[in-house]
Each structure stands twice: as structure tokens, then as C-alpha cells.
Write a protein that binds this DNA or RNA. Structure first.
Length: 264
DNA sequence: ATGCCTAACACCGTTAGA
């Protein structure tokens, strides 16, 4: 089963690129972020025409996440537990029913759009950190189920200096701050496996390039889109790649898809 | 030190992104 994550930076503005990539890459499950549309305005018809079921948690103008799946989606949950006053659409989770005896080929997936957190001297940063604390709590609960789980999305965390083009330039940013990295590391220490990094040792490979300063042409990127696998999912991991193709198109999203392949 | 792009919304600029 091929599972991808992609921050599309407006599903309306980048729908043709999104549809092209679905046809070309043929992922079974896609976790989308930054839809920037309400549920009503999500282009479900065009995506369903390609054989996908959609679970959408949208919002006007900002945020918005979705799960696309060629298999049926069950037990869809929207919003991250732990703060009823949080009205930003940054989390949607579902069970992908891929069959198998007793659901053995299925997997639980979540599409995550973690807050950016800049500037760090504002409540945006405290919101990011508390959101990550809530994610740690929820990820802990999911581990107890012993299900295969894939938590994929735009984490807005550069895990290590080797995951950006210029560590000095990014020093002090919410994406590299020790508090952000510590919480990301907590997810790994709980038992989650970051799919791409566990299969690749190379430095300076990226999933995001700023629109400004010719960042794409100079390969001045950062790696912030991640797929975190529970032990039961990691046992089935056979491949993970970053597909730079979509970022090189005309008027692209500033992120490019990251995917992993699970056995069965 | 700041803008540099891009998208949305609404107004001809502001907010947000990373």
C-alpha cells in the first residue's frame, strides 16, 4: 500500500497538479494539507472520479486537511483531542479498510498540519508547542491499540541541521527550535519510525522550497513533511521516497509529495 | 534590518505561510 503526504498550498489553486500526480503516482492513500477551502468547496467530484474516497476537514482561507483513499474509509475523526477551543482544521484521522483476514491489511492514517509557530515570541509558538503536546498524547493512545498507524503530514519541524540547506540561517526559527525538535523526537522515542529517514542516510534532501529567492533553482530547501509509523506499520515498510516532480512544475505548491510503501 | 513569492479575501492592501 502506497501512502503519500502532500501540502498542496490551496487545493483549488493546485487542483490540476494534484489530479495529474494522483494519476501518475497511483498512491493508495494520500494525506493532504493546507486545502484552504471549506468542506463544501472541496473538489470531491474531480478526485472521486479518479477512484478515491475523501475524508475532509476543511476551513475557509486557512489550514484544512484531507485523506484520500482508494479503499473504504471508516471511523473518520476530525480535530485533535485535548483542546475543545481549538477551531483550526489541522487534523483528520481514519481507518483504511484494505481487507485481509480480520482487517489485517488495513491501516489507521492521520493527515497532520502542524502549526508553523513563527514568530517565536508570540502565542503562535506556544500554540505550536501545546499542539505538539496534544499530538504526543494522542500518538501515545494510538500505540496502545497496537494497530498499524501512519501519522503523515506537514510537521513544520526540521528534525536535524542536515535536513536544511543552511542551519545558521534557520537557527532560532520555530521549525528548528529545541522545544520543537524535542517534541518531534518524543514521538520517535515513543516508538514511531520516520519512514524516509530510516531508509535514507543522505543529508540535504528536502520536501519544501520557498517561493522566494530562487530557492528551488538553488536547492535551498528544508525537509519538514514526514510519515511517522507505529511499530506495526514500520514492520511492513518497504520503501519511502520524496517525489520532486510536482515542485518543478509551473505555479506549483511550495511542498512536494513524500510517500512510503507498506507490505500487504 | 527587511523584502524577496504566493494565495485568499477583499480592496487596490493585509494576513499568513516557512
Amino acid at each position: 500500500m502506497k501512502i503519500a503526504t502532500w501540502n498542496v498550498n490551496s487545493i483549488k489553486a493546485h487542483l490540476p497538479h494534484t489530479l495529474d500526480w494522483l494519476k501518475e503516482a497511483q498512491p493508495d492513500v494520500v494525506l493532504l494539507q493546507e486545502l484552504k477551502v471549506t468542506d463544501e468547496n472541496f473538489p470531491a467530484m474531480e478526485i472521486e472520479e479518479l477512484g478515491y474516497n475523501c475524508a475532509v476537514h476543511g476551513q475557509k482561507t486557512y489550514n484544512g486537511v484531507a485523506i484520500l483513499s482508494k479503499h473504504p474509509l471508516d471511523d473518520v475523526r476530525t480535530g485533535l483531542a485535548g483542546d475543545d477551543s481549538d477551531d483550526q482544521a489541522r487534523y483528520v484521522e481514519a481507518w483504511v479498510d484494505a481487507g485481509g483476514a480480520g482487517g489485517s491489511a488495513g491501516v489507521r492514517v492521520a493527515s497532520i498540519y502542524l502549526p508553523n509557530g513563527n514568530p517565536t515570541d508570540t502565542d503562535k509558538f506556544t500554540y505550536k508547542l501545546s499542539w505538539m503536546d496534544r499530538l504526543v498524547d494522542h500518538a501515545t493512545e494510538l500505540l496502545a491499540t497496537e494497530e498499524p498507524v501512519v501519522l503523515g503530514g506537514d510537521y513544520n519541524v526540521i528534525p536535524a541541521d542536515e535536513d536544511c540547506y543552511d542551519a545558521v540561517a534557520w537557527e532560532g526559527d520555530a521549525l528548528t527550535r529545541p522545544e520543537s525538535r524535542a517534541r518531534f523526537r518524543t514521538l520517535l522515542n515513543l516508538g514511531y519510525t520516520e519512514a524516509w529517514r530510516t531508509l535514507h542516510s543522505e543529508s540535504h534532501v528536502y520536501s519544501f522550497w520557498d517561493y522566494q529567492r530562487g530557492a528551488w533553482q538553488k536547492d535551498n530547501g528544508i525537509r519538514i513533511d514526514h510519515l511517522l509509523l507505529s511499530p506495526q506499520a514500520a514492520d511492513r515498510l518497504t520503501a519511502s521516497e520524496i517525489d520532486k516532480g510536482p515542485r518543478g512544475k509551473q505555479k506549483p505548491s511550495d511542498h512536494t509529495p513524500v510517500w512510503c510503501e507498506l507490505d500487504g
